[in-house]
């Protein structure tokens, strides 16, 4: 299954990806980003927005 990957060594927990998620899949729990795969549609909005290029797609 394809899903959004989070590179936690790059993520600076800024919350920009949460703001652009219209499916309410992304949540920033303090400094820990979570992505709810049941809600995520792989629309890529968060991947394009991440200032640190911490997000990508993994799986097949």
């Amino acid at each position: 299954m394809r899903r959004i990957s989070i590179n936690r060594y790059r993520c600076a927990y800024c919350g920009a990806c949460v703001a652009v998620c219209k499916f309410d899949a992304n949540e920033l729990v303090e400094t820990f980003l979570t992505i709810n795969e049941d809600k995520c549609t792989l629309c890529m909005a968060c991947v394009k927005t991440c200032p640190m290029q911490a997000l990508g797609v993994e799986g097949s």
């Binding site: 920009a16 703001a19 652009v20 992304n26 640190m52």
Partner: peptide, 25 residues
């Protein structure tokens, strides 16, 4: 803040499109 969820919980849609957010470093 930018990652606000309070609005979403009560139906205020503040989702930003890709032309409505500055991605900053």
């Amino acid at each position: 803040g930018v990652e606000s969820r309070v609005g979403k919980w009560v139906g205020i849609d503040t989702t930003l499109k890709l032309g409505e957010i500055e991605s900053c470093v």
